[in-house]
Design a protein around this nucleic acid. Structure first.
Lengths: 234, 234
DNA sequence: CGTAACTTTGAGTAACATCAAGTGGCGTGG
DNA sequence: CCACGCCACTTGATGTTACTCAAAGTTACG
């Protein structure tokens, strides 16, 4: 937070080496810094709604978000969870294709679309980076398709747990501690199941010794490979 | 196929104004032409397999493709159908994330990845175009998520039919003729149903006067809005 | 400490899958 | 030209998974 001289906020950012910024050197980062604004959100806060004009793009600096879409009749499908380092806001036809909300208190780095577009012209590396991010997001969405339709309830829950372990788990050898930032209902909307089925599935996994619960949000996975054996691959 | 002078193949391409090429003017297109190769495929032919090194990128000039992924145990999920003007080959980690096969005799325009990347550096417009294509593909994948998990069998089938009408239907006012390039089994893999359920659903729709069949592959939809009413939105 | 939101558990059911015939179209070879 | 066989498709009977509805148990928080 030192104001003057050669230092500037982006330089000390905790996701400096994960987010799109990693494509840039310090001098370039300084330029990017000028067009970015820090945004803080409480748990449950909305970043933007599906259908809003996509005026801004964001980087997740800290915390966790959920992305979801609604059918006209109110049915909800989550399309993803986002954590530190993730990018969001790519749009189609100028509007956001999903709603983004904070699951926990979060901090985002906000760019005005127009300004960022100008940056893209100046730093092609940044556009390359964005393209590869988009490709990645696409691959994730397609993997998720598999989860949603070609897997049983147990496989779906195992799959999402493994994904969360990767992003926010604290691994020790092959065991892992996990602090879920989302509700059972979020997990249900993500896996395409109901809260009841998610709950039943977790209970069953607990009974079989695949997982241990610590309160409602805490999770301990004694042997990750064992859980992976139930995930049906991918 | 005139070799010399101001003419060149790309100029007369049937998808000149739909594919990524539309970002380029004639002079630039001439450059792109130099790195592109025409590829013809028979029905059932494979463009590439999931996991192959992604050496090439493609534009669909003519025909129809199906994209699919496999789970380790052999379960298959289609991630999309592609038609004239569509782009394919964006990869993650250097390998194709899905298998692409021709449903009908098709013609593709092939670019070597390395050459295309060099073109991207020279024509930023092209990279913009690619990014927006990727965003689009992403949005489609996310829409498909909704179809797969939050919809009933009837809604799923109605949704895919409407999508096909948009891409390859011959509309006359609010009625439409459709020549399906894919089998029931492809539709099943795409909607996450079984062939039997797809077949039953189509029979039911026929009984209710929502559709008419002309042989097995031919379809006539007397009132598109009526079908749309069964699609559950999106 | 009480209320509201979330979670778990149970019983019954609906929707779709699975298994099993049977039909129809099309190309091949006699 | 017809018979045969193959493949895709259709239809029916049965089975299973996860949903729905209902209620009780927990947790978070004012």
């Amino acid at each position: 937070m030192t104001a003057a001289a050669p230092n500037f906020p982006c330089q000390t950012c905790e996701v400096r080496d994960q987010a799109i910024c990693k494509a840039l050197d310090d001098a370039e980062l300084r330029q990017l810094n000028k067009i970015s604004t820090a945004v803080k959100l409480d748990a449950g806060g909305t970043v933007f709604y599906e259908g809003d004009d996509s005026t801004y793009l964001f980087n997740v600096v800290h915390g966790s978000l959920r992305l979801s879409k609604l059918l006209p009749d109110g049915r909800r499908q989550m399309t993803g969870f986002l954590f530190a380092g993730d990018f969001l806001g790519l749009s189609i036809g100028g509007v956001y294709p999903y709603t983004a909300e904070a699951l926990a208190p979060s901090e985002l780095c906000r760019f005005e679309r127009a300004s960022l577009t100008r940056m893209l012209d100046r730093f092609p590396k940044l556009e390359h980076q964005l393209l590869s991010l988009a490709s990645n997001e696409l691959a994730q969405a397609q993997d998720h398709l598999m989860v949603l339709r070609r897997k049983t309830a147990t496989e779906r829950v195992a799959t999402v747990l493994l994904k969360l372990v990767d992003r926010i788990g604290k691994k020790v050898n092959s065991s892992c501690a996990l602090d879920l930032p989302m509700t059972r209902s979020d997990l249900a909307d993500y896996t395409g199941l109901t809260t009841e089925t998610v709950s039943r599935t977790l209970s069953q996994m607990k009974k079989e010794g695949l997982i241990d619960t610590v309160g409602v949000r805490g999770l301990h996975i004694p042997r990750i490979e064992a859980l992976a054996g139930y995930s049906g691959g991918i």
